[in-house]
Design a protein around this nucleic acid. Structure first.
Lengths: 218, 218
DNA sequence: TTGCCGCATTGATCTGGATCAAATCCGCGG
DNA sequence: CCGCGGATTTGATCCAGATCAATGCGGCAA
């Protein structure tokens, strides 16, 4: 079983053993829904494999993707009784599910686990502020470039450093994450490729001119 | 001294006394800066009076306001070594400042204080997700209306329920919060006033048609 | 191999909100 | 009371990105 590296790095062996007793390894096929915004929050999840789309919907169908969960990520910080967003699998996904009751009890019993969770929440909040800046004030090109560099960095931290950034999500997902339309995402990718800033490859993008990209993301 | 109601509701009297020893009551005049994005984070703050603008800047001057801190709010969740955003006073502001060292030590010693902080962080994260939806997918009119209802709700929770929403920040601040320009904010307010959805009064706005507004915010 | 079908790209046109440009308004110091 | 300076409103025009509309491109089931 994949180590619950993200949340659990601060636990000792006894505690890890305890945690693994509570963990229910589960998997979801491509497109399956883990949970839906507004539903009662029964479980929290630690992602062990695959990518998950997290999103909010408006009643008329407009969608905002609030994040993509990668292996190691923890779903359950931003919830009280009900889930604040929906989550579904992009490709096949493996998670460890915990009942909320067990999770709550464990957190109450282990202050340093709580501390670790709080650090995560704090980090998420910082990222959320970055995303507000991106959504509110950046141009389409800047949005795309920041997104690519951000994904590259996240894959790198998972031990997959590469100039080729995997993009398992659809163009529509990217558009809904960046507050753009699918056409604008596509056109902007094409333009960046034409000027050799990136190279579009199946399933992702290869970073060809990181200097320019980092300059734009500034 | 104003009770540190927000963070400290879960503390007992001994702990509150301890906390008040650590608290440095401070105030800032209108426009003064509490701290700047990127600076080393020496202090955390609990707002006891006034309103604070929290914002991020791009190198070319584009600004995104990531929030407005009201009395009771806590500044210091979303930071590690350096402040992730800048903060300055809108009108005169009173805060309790805590050194980060003292804050860290106290939090380590008091798990239920940490738990309370974590609940706050979690709530902030939920609000941040809402704001992403607003910035990425809502129209100018929807943005303004959501903003007004949100401010009304926040004032109400502070014991100031009223159909008149105080807006001590400038139009530019509102624009930078909603990802709009000052002209669009002004025009949209004017339009809402013309159709009697709101009434613009000195220092704020009076909600005239809450039904319509809540329907739009849906 | 063929024919879908869902994604993605590309093109033409439109438009909400930005930008540029004046007025007004208003609080305040002299 | 007057004049100044910042904030706000209002008007005219522009444009980045949305919308509308084909077309292209795989992957895969039969």
């Amino acid at each position: 079983m994949v180590r619950l590296v993200s949340v659990c790095a601060s636990l000792n062996d006894d505690e890890l053993a305890l945690l693994e007793q509570l963990a229910n390894p589960t998997h979801f096929a491509s497109g399956e829904t883990l949970f839906t915004q507004g539903a009662e929050a029964h479980c929290v999840y630690n992602v062990t494999g695959g990518v998950i789309r997290l999103y909010k919907l408006l009643s008329d169908g407009r969608r905002q993707v609030v994040g993509f969960a990668l292996p190691g990520d923890f779903l359950g910080l931003a919830m009280r009784d009900a889930y604040g967003f929906s989550a579904d699998a992009i490709g096949d996904v493996a998670v460890c599910a915990f009942s909320r009751a067990a999770y709550t009890a464990l957190v109450d019993a282990k202050p340093h686990l709580l501390k670790r969770l709080h650090e995560f929440a704090t980090h998420e909040l910082t990222l959320a502020h970055e995303q507000m800046l991106l959504l509110g004030r950046r141009t389409a090109e800047e949005k795309l470039i920041c997104f690519l560099l951000g994904m590259q960095q996240r894959w790198a931290r998972l031990g997959k450093p590469s100039v080729t950034v995997p993009l398992p999500m659809t163009r529509q997902d990217i558009a809904d994450f960046l507050g753009l339309t699918i056409e604008t995402v596509s056109r902007t990718f094409t333009r960046l490729a034409k000027e050799k800033t990136i190279l579009i490859v199946p399933g992702g993008v290869r970073v060809m001119n990181p200097e320019r990209m980092h300059a734009v993301a500034a």
